[in-house]
Nucleic acid binder design. Sequence first.
RNA 1: GCGCCCGUAGCUCAGCUGGAUAGAGCACCGGCCUUCGAAGCCGGGUGUCGUAGGUUCGAAUCCUACCGGGCGCACCA
Length: 561
Amino acid sequence: MRSRSALKALVQDLLADAATRAWPDLDIPHPPHVERTRDAAHGDFASNIAMQLTKAARRNPREIAQAIVDAMGDDARIDRVEIAGPGFLNFFLAPGAFRATIDQAIDAGAAYGRSDTGAGEKVLVEFVSANPTGPLHVGHGRGAAVGDTLARLYEAAGWDVTREFYYNDAGNQIEMLARSVSARCNGLTPDDADWPEGGYRGDYLADLAAAYLRGDTVTADDREVTGAADPDDKAAIREFAVAYLRREQDADLRAFGVVFDNYALESALYAEGRVEATVEALIAAGHTYENDGALWLATTDYGDDKDRVMRKAEGGYTYFVPDVAYHRAKWERGFTRAINEQGADHHGTIARVRAGLQALDIGIPEGWPDYILHQMVTVMRGGEEVKLSKRAGSYVTLRDLIDEVGRDATRYFLVARKPDSQQTFDIDLARSQSEDNPVYYIQYAHARIHAVFRQLDEQGMAWDREAADLSQLTSEYEQRVITLISRFPEVVAGAAADSSVQAIPHYLRDMADAFHSYYNAQKFLDADPGLRNARLSLIATARQVIANGLELLGVSAPERM
RNA sequence: GCGCCCGUAGCUCAGCUGGAUAGAGCACCGGCCUUCGAAGCCGGGUGUCGUAGGUUCGAAUCCUACCGGGCGCACCA
C-alpha cells in the first residue's frame, strides 16, 4: 500500500499494468523501478524497466519499451510517455496532475506525507539506553535525535511504534557509581588519595551526594526513592543514585523533545527470572559447554568471531546474557520488527546478541534485530574542539548543547548527517541566525508564509480556496514549489523505508530555498482573486509541508521569529 | 593482526539500493530594500567520486586488493 498522494505510485501502477499486459509471461518487478528525473527533458519520472527485462524477454530494450508504451491505456494525469536513450521510459505528467497534489495536501493537512505502508505492524525502537552513571553526553544526543526521528518516520509510514530505553541498574558500573557517591558523602574529592580507583569524577556527584545526605526524595521511572543519608550504606546509595541520575537524564530528554513509552531495567530481567530461563534454554538447545570453570556459548556457530563466556568462573553472568534475555523478551512481546539505535562503539556486541538469539532456536530471523549505528560527534566552538563540561568533567553534555544553541538547532544538526558518518557539530554555525544556518533558513520560510497571511488579514482580505484558479500557477518558481510538494510523500516513505533520517533535513532545505526564491520573484497578494487565491493555496501548502517535515525532526515551526 | 564504518568541489555534505552531462550549501566576487519580513533574493566555477583492477549495455553506487582516517576486538558494560 502506498500513499495515494504520491505521484510516483501512480506512475508505478500504470507502468506495472502496461508491462504485465505487454509481457504476460515475464516476471515484472512490483513495484517497478521509477525515479524522479534530474533533467526536465527526460520528463517528470523515468523507468529503466525495459533495460531490466532485456535478458528475460530476449529483445532489445527499445523494442520492449515500445511494447509497454503500446499497452499503456490513456490516463488524464499522464500527458505522454517517450522512449529515450538506450530504452528509458520517460513520463511527462499533465500539469493538472501536479496541481491536484495541492488540493490533496490541503485536505490531508498534518497527515500529508503519511502512508499506511507499515499497516499498523508493531515496531520497537530502542535508543539512547544510557546507563544511569551520569548526565547524557553529545553522543547520546545524537542517538536521541536519530532514534526519535526514526520513530517519527515509522509512525508516518503507518507503523505502530514503541520507544524504549534500556539500562543497566545493577552491574559493576553502578557499583563504581555507588562507591564514588559514598566517597563524596565522606567529603572526598577526585583529587584525594583515597578516591576510589576508576571512580566517576564529575561535579554532578557532589550535588547527588548532597541530595542523598539531605534525605531528598526523587521520582523516576515510576519509582520514588528517599535518600537514606547514611554515607556508608552502599545499597541505599546505589538505589538513590540510579533514581537521581535517571531523573536528570529524563529531564534532559524532555527538554530535547524525546519521550519514551517504556523503560526496561536489567535488574528486572533477573528479578523476573528471564536471565536464568534464557541460560537454561541455551543449555537445553545444546549450544553451550564448560571450559576453565566457565560456561560458554558457541556463538561461532552463528557467525561470531569467537565463543563467548556466559557464566564466569567466579559465578556471575557476563553482560551479554541479560542482553540476550532482553531481546528474547522483545521478540516474545510480539515485536517482529525491532530497531536498535546505538553508538558505533558498541558494534562488537551485535554478532553475539544475534548469535545468542539464534542459539535459542525459537524462530527468530537471522538478521533480527536491525541496528542503526551512529558515529562520534566532535563539538567545535571558535574553531577549536570542545571537550569538557563543568558538570560532567570529561565530556560535553547534551544539556550543554541545548542550553547553548537551543533544542531546534541541536536536533536538526544531529540528524542532518547520515548516522554512519562522523560528525562535527559547529556551535557557532548552529547559533548563527542567518542563511548560513539551515534551521533558521527553513523556519524563516515557515514564519514568512505566516507573515503573508497576516498581511492578507491586515488588508481586509481572506484566503478563499474555492476561488483559487490553480491553472494560473505557471511560473518556473511555482512549478518548482509544486514539484517539491508532490515529492514530499515519496521523501517520507523513502526515508522510513531505508531509515535515512538525513533525507528530511535535505528536503526541507530545498523546499525553503524554492519558497524564498518564489517569494522574491512574485507577489502573492495579487489583485486578481483567482491568481491571488491560487498563490495563497500554494504557499499554504508549502507551509504545511514545511511544518510536517519539521515535526518529523521534532523541530518547531514558529509563526513569528 | 582481525572485524565494522567513512573517504565525492577549497570546506561541510547529498546522491532516490546500477542509469542518461555527478548535485546543494558555505567560502569568494558582483548586483538587489519608498513594494507580502533583506533572518531574504539574483548572477558568476569548481571535480583523477581515495588508488588499481573486476562484474555489464551502463559503476560514485556491486565485488576484490591496496592507501588514508575513526571505532571495536574481556571470564568490563
